[in-house]
Design a protein around this nucleic acid. Structure first.
Lengths: 332, 332
DNA sequence: CCGCCGGGTGAAAGCGCTTACAGACATGCG
DNA sequence: CGCATGTCTGTAAGCGCTTTCACCCGGCGG
């Protein structure tokens, strides 16, 4: 990777400008000259240095993606959708996970210096830093957070599906519910889900904090909940991983799902379909979320659009076995 | 992001060389000068352009990761382990998925121009291109492929664990087995698993091709297999996703697992533990695979080591419910 | 009092490319 | 035949940084 445009030019007997023009198709080049250049390029196996190109062009042709973790399938799926489109658009994707990182600010700033724009998940980045990035003119797209000025936001619908899910559970005839989720403080997806559910179930549902959205935390919180008196008849979980933890807890306690207690998740990750029993959840178009984010970012970078856009993608409940018995078996 | 080192120098009343020296701590700088420079940096909120630094330094401080897909949890996990260490070592990671891509060669070459080295999964990249990359002097680490000259390889153990798994199944008293996997042609992980299993079970096991390592392919192949006459008593799957497909197939056909047919997977992905029934599988240290790869690549790049190394990480069967009934319940 | 040494600094040469600008050379027209 | 008009090509100025080299200057030993 250390043959430069100068060597090509020398070998072809032309100037580096001509080589550049030939390769990029900018400006006129005589057919004979082009041929000579291409031949030299071929022989030397020349690939323009990305660094040189970027420096001269003043753009990176790369995007960043910032996420808290890749452990669950959610981020991986969105990332995948993103990468596919970004690559199509000729941009590389640089990833940055913030989990367990100290000095996230520095990492983000370094990243900002390597890309033309970035996708940031939810509230991964502290608000002041977000403001600074916006001020610096970094093109930003946020996935799954509430709209903010100066950047695109993209998320999937929560409230309506939460209502639909709650209504479905109510139809099963249950009367006491619990909502298992992480801190319900910030304006994030889970908060909206909680509010959607509560708007239907009202005082019949109580919120329980799990700390994090993981199987372990769900397991722990559910165990406590199910062991206690006044065990809820149905547990609505903030996401699938917490729900899987709840399922495990019920199993260990010898409780039948959905006979003794119903459980629902959110996201429809791979494991949901295969769980014991199959998990009723809400499907998020994760890959499309990523794909749309990539296109949005591209618009921002190329300047096709300069006013922030805020979109919400539709979601839908996926009714499986964990929420209760259904007359005719539904299979997904 | 457009304040340059020149502006800082002007504001601090020094030359750009001094600014650079101050910031990088290379060369002597008088305390008073340093202070002036730092003050100017602070006021202008200066961050050195990554492009400029890289061009001058002749290195990218970035690594690439090439994988076929991020759909399953396997790649995501390895990637996560990789990113964590790479970031610790001050390197960004650029991802490239080859799934459904045409002109993979160009993509890889472009990537090669953006990084100091890369991690490539298995046989994602066509062999001639691998050779070219090696020839070009790109630092390479391959994960889960057989050793090749000129690059590091890192994989997890297959044969011994496959034998152990097969022995365990034999202990259950089964006599007819099937191996469900993708084309057993290349020298890859699955091939080793197959040979390990067969070395124990001999003629009692037959291989069935699934085409791809996906739930759908596993489902399809297993359905055919289980519907046919001479249904095997146990199905050893090439990986967890195929196994999940097999589990689904058995369920649909009204067959009890492990009562009517036993099923095992490989990888111990998240869904394995939660499957109906919990899936017996082999645990691969996915995250560690990634972490080790990152360190190996770093050694290659920094020049600490220049001879390729080839390592194999240990794996172990995880016995759960899908392989048969066990006297005392094992829970993981 | 002289010469040396070394800390501190700046000028300038890259790093590999793109592109504005200008020059060279044909060609076509009046 | 002269000139305008193109077409093609080369020169050189960046892009933002690192680093070598040379230089200046004060302090020290001789």
């Amino acid at each position: 990777m250390d043959v430069t445009i100068y060597e090509v030019a020398r070998r072809a007997g032309v100037s580096i400008a001509t080589v550049s023009r030939t390769l990029r198709g900018t400006g006129p080049v005589a057919a004979k000259t082009r041929e000579k250049v291409l031949k030299a390029v071929e022989e030397l196996n020349f690939t323009p240095s990305r660094l040189g190109v970027s420096l001269a062009e003043g753009r990176h042709a790369a995007n960043g993606v910032v996420f808290p973790d890749l452990a669950g399938p959610y981020y991986a799926e969105v990332l995948l959708g993103y990468e596919e489109v970004a690559s199509e658009l000729g941009r590389s994707v640089i990833i940055l996970s913030t989990k367990g990182r100290t000095r996230v600010g520095d990492l983000i700033k370094d990243l900002a210096g390597r890309v033309d724009g970035m996708l940031i998940f939810g509230h991964t980045v502290p608000e002041p830093l977000v403001a600074e990035l916006v001020r610096l003119g970094v093109r930003l797209v946020f996935v799954s957070r509430d709209p903010l000025p100066g950047a695109d936001t993209l998320r999937s619908e929560n409230t309506a599906s939460a209502r639909a899910l709650a209504a479905h559970l109510a139809d099963h005839g249950y009367e006491r519910f619990a909502f298992l989720g992480a801190p319900l403080t910030s304006h994030d997806d889970v908060d909206e889900r909680w509010r959607g559910v509560r708007s239907v179930l009202g005082g019949a549902i109580e919120a329980v904090d799990t700390g994090h959205y993981t199987v372990e935390c769900g397991h722990e919180a559910a165990t406590k909940l199910l062991k206690g008196r006044d065990r809820p008849r149905a547990i609505v979980c903030s996401d699938d991983e917490v729900a899987l933890g709840a399922l495990l807890a019920a199993e260990e306690l010898g409780l039948d799902v959905p006979g003794d207690v119903a459980v629902t998740g959110w996201d429809d990750i791979m494991a949901a379909r295969h769980a014991r029993p199959a998990l009723t959840t809400v499907r998020q178009p994760m890959r499309e979320l990523g794909a749309r984010a990539a296109r949005a970012l591209d618009e921002l970078i190329t300047g096709v659009r300069d006013t922030p856009s805020h979109h919400t993608l539709a979601t839908a409940p996926v009714i499986r076995a964990s929420c209760g018995h259904h007359p005719q078996e539904v299979r997904t």
